[in-house]
């Protein structure tokens, strides 16, 4: 494991079976380390199990930071209600200030009320955007012309966090930036990066006790 210069101490790491149905021991063990914050890599099921155990074992760390799926997903928010608030996910996200993001949010609210816009929707949308843009510039459906047009993509008016969409020699969009989003009141607010932020982080998170 590489050693990073960080002003934090990693007090423990706990690996568990992602298909497990009971994480009580894992949470008890984490709680016993006296950790101030929890760094999690999980999926939906274990994210919900972990939360439930945190509540039952009456432990609210200062923060829960997720480096992947699970904690921001709609089902997590819906299932856990007020207990879903607090965790911060570090993931690719959309910039809520961008025009296209607002349009997407409005459209989704109309056709699928109650569904939060997320990266899956946005990436699907941007894929179509890239294809449409390339087709417009190529002026034909000739495969070679289309491929060349895609390579020359330079979209600045998009939804994702970051300056836009542009592909490098390997075909990666290196303009996309990561973001931090937090669950607040059943919705997702963006904390970082600065130009995309629409809320200040809530830290430490509110105690699970008394949230019912």
């Amino acid at each position: 494991m590489p050693i990073f210069e960080m002003p934090y101490v990693l007090v423990g790491d706990i690996a568990y079976d992602p298909a497990t149905h009971d994480l009580s021991v894992e949470v008890a063990k984490a709680k016993a380390t006296g950790a101030e914050a929890l760094l999690v890599i999980s999926r939906l099921n274990d994210a919900m199990l972990l939360t439930r155990e945190l509540v039952k074992q009456r432990w609210t760390p200062q923060g829960i930071m997720s480096l992947g799926p699970g904690w921001y997903e709609d089902q997590y928010l819906k299932t856990l209600g007020r207990l879903a608030d607090g965790p911060i996910s570090f993931i690719p996200w959309y910039d809520p200030h961008k025009k296209l993001s607002r349009m997407l949010e409005a459209e989704l609210a109309k056709t699928h009320p109650g569904v939060n816009l997320n990266t899956d929707h946005v990436y699907t949308f941007e894929a179509l955007l890239v294809a449409a843009d390339a087709y417009k510039r190529a002026g034909s459906s000739d495969p070679k012309a289309l491929a060349d047009a895609i390579r020359a993509t330079n979209i600045t008016d998009n939804a994702s966090v970051g300056p836009g969409i542009q592909f490098d020699a390997k075909g990666q969009n290196d303009k996309v930036r990561g973001a931090a989003v937090q669950n607040r009141g059943g919705k997702l607010v963006t904390l970082a990066p600065k130009q995309a932020a629409n809320a200040k982080p809530e830290w430490p998170m509110n105690s699970y006790l008394g949230r019912g």
Partner: peptide, 20 residues
């Protein structure tokens, strides 16, 4: 997808001395 029930006591726990 995983499904669960949300009973009123789903998040309750009892504390007896040091044991929760």
């Amino acid at each position: 997808d995983a499904r669960a029930v949300q009973t009123a006591y789903a998040y309750d726990s009892f504390q007896v001395g040091p044991v929760i």
